[in-house]
Design a protein around this nucleic acid. Structure first.
Lengths: 358, 358
DNA sequence: TTTATTTACTTAACCGGTTAAGTAAATAAC
DNA sequence: GTTATTTACTTAACCGGTTAAGTAAATAAA
């Protein structure tokens, strides 16, 4: 029953409107209109056209329509990488909305390279997409390429890593607060020597999280520690060295705020190698969407961003702009709060396993 | 210096070949040829055309060319989900090759639904893409929609989850062997009551891993245990219940082979809740690409698939087929082996942290 | 009955490129 | 000096749809 009968040799190209027209002795215009259920076509003709189209499995060529209508029904998603919980969840949210709206999503990875980002955005001025969702790369320190995209009438919505110089919508999370809360949590846990690990100086999220961190230290009488930050890189090996040095210095940190997920592994490995106990010797909190945070050794206290929701919100706003004209995108910006989830990397082991939710 | 000077109000649409032609008093054909460096155009004219194109930031409309050339320079990637280490790494590999070849990648998520998969593949018959890379959904139990895509001249390459009824290339890993090795590893570790957790009955990878598991049990005198398998679902909560029941039954398993990554969390949580010690009471090995496997509690023994390489290989083969005609795709199939990485979930804790590689 | 309107189409232009075929002028061959 | 060839283009068709404008026949209004 599940067997598939090989169909008779199919024509080379696909079925076109022209073929339907010839078959039914109608003009291509009539076919086009019949398929779009135009009032100009009689019910009977519509029936015949639609029946034949279904029978021959007619599927319109999307590019022909795109050309004429100057709409591609396609958006671009430009992100630094996809092998990252935050971005893959966000992409998931974006795709969900796109599918629902009948749009297609092109994916582009910058791998944190400004040059790649520039090349991608330049291509996107071609009319290939109706709009762009993006999260800027770590390397991005100029905005000209983004400006040029904006100037060529392509609606753009940022998510997470926004570019504030550009007058458009940005979906962010409460980075300042989160940085503040993460730091305060460590302070509450008794940390005095808190270090912040960043991965960029220019990124909006980095500087906001940093500001939150500094404010928290200031508010809690640790203002003299606010320069306790370390700029990590993209290379895990480099970071391993960097963190090893850090954990061996005279005034060893007793608290770490990691502003990016991928530093988690390195931190755990360095502490493991140096026999530094988490959380007894050093408490660790990470900005992370790792699904395995709860089952790490020890389980990881996180600031968890609403990744899926942010992707969804960004896409929703973009489509709103694509559907209605004259939306001032900048006014559509949103902030969706992150959640601080306390686990064993900042409090003594209780070994409580939380029931999987939903 | 990094300041961006707002450009003079730009024209509505983009620059077209027609505009360049008018400006230079040439035909559109001449412009087109000049831009493609045709021998039919004089050096001087080419210079002028290219200079003006650069000055006005001319970017060709991709859909106009696609329509005429019947090539979209775009491929589709159809995968069950993206928030999964294997697929995001594979996507990464795919994108790397696509970019290099000047192709664009559309991403489609089936969310393991056969209906979504069908709708997507139907759309892809439109000429939207030149080729398709896919990993079938768990629900897929018929092949008609895939046959139809193949029949409409769209080259298709499977990766990981192949569909053997279709005569095309498939990039897989050594699933049988991996199932065999995983099971043998547990047997070597002393397990007698080994259970295999699957997520599908029909998926090629599932059945191969299962066969490997059964062969291993048979080869080691545990043939009577080969029906010790549990079919899990997509819902974490359901699986939690399922596994809780399993771990409470009279003959409790002392070894678990989880054939999918996402079961890891549930297994750890259930064992945690029931105070079952891993690896003392039960040893666990997972098919997984989790970057955090090494820092889990306990660190996780895995069968790690070459995800990035598989994506890369699949894309490479697809592009080969797109560039040269008459490639019999089925003959291009490849098997890239997975790696068994022993960690603390199957052997007594040694608390060795391995240095981050690379 | 005559004119106005509606119905159900067709014609043709258009989207923005590519490319086969044609052509005038310059250069080469005889 | 005449013909053949090459150079450097132009013209026009084409890809596969959409849509503004036109039209013949049927129906409604005057």
């Amino acid at each position: 029953m599940l067997q598939y009968v090989t169909p008779k040799k199919q024509r080379m190209g696909n079925i076109t409107i022209k073929m339907l027209a010839k078959e039914l002795n109608l003009s291509t215009a009539a076919i086009s209109k019949a398929l779009r259920d135009s009032y100009e076509i009689s019910a009977g003709t519509k029936q015949r056209v639609q029946a034949l189209a279904a029978k021959l499995n007619y599927i319109p060529n999307p590019y022909a329509g795109s050309l004429r209508k100057r709409k591609s029904k396609t958006i671009a998603v430009v992100i630094p990488e996809v092998a990252d919980s935050f971005f893959s969840l966000a992409l998931n949210g974006i795709e969900a909305v796109a599918i629902e709206k009948g749009y297609h999503a092109l994916i582009y990875l910058t791998h944190e390279k400004a040059a790649r980002e520039k090349a991608i955005l330049k291509d996107l001025q071609s009319g290939r997409v109706d709009g762009v969702l993006m999260s800027v790369s770590v390397e991005t320190d100029t905005t000209q390429h983004i400006c040029e995209l904006s100037n060529s009438q392509v609606p753009l919505v940022f998510f997470d890593r926004v570019c504030e110089e550009i007058d458009t919508a940005g979906i962010t999370t409460n980075d300042f607060e989160s940085g503040y809360n993460a730091t305060t949590h460590l302070i509450d846990c008794g940390c005095k020597e808190i270090v912040l690990l960043s991965v960029s100086k220019s990124l909006s999220i980095s500087s906001k999280r940093l500001e939150g961190y500094r404010q928290a230290l200031t508010d809690h009488g640790l203002k003299n520690k606010i320069t306790n930050t370390i700029l990590c890189s993209d290379a895990a090996a480099k970071n391993y060295t960097l963190l090893t040095t850090m954990m061996q210095r005279r005034q060893r940190p007793d608290g770490i705020v990691a502003t990016v997920e991928k530093l988690t592994t390195t931190i755990y490995e360095v502490c493991g190698a140096l026999k530094i106990n988490i959380p007894a010797d050093v408490k660790v909190i990470c900005f992370s969407n790792l699904s395995t945070a709860a089952i790490l050794n020890p389980s990881l206290t996180t600031i968890t961003q609403p990744a899926f929701e942010m992707g969804k919100a960004a896409a929703t706003i973009l489509f709103k702009a694509l559907e209605k004209k004259n939306i001032h995108l900048a006014k559509e910006s949103m902030v969706i709060p992150s959640t601080l989830i306390v686990r064993n990397s900042t409090v003594e082991k209780t070994n409580i396993f939380v029931r999987a939710k939903k």
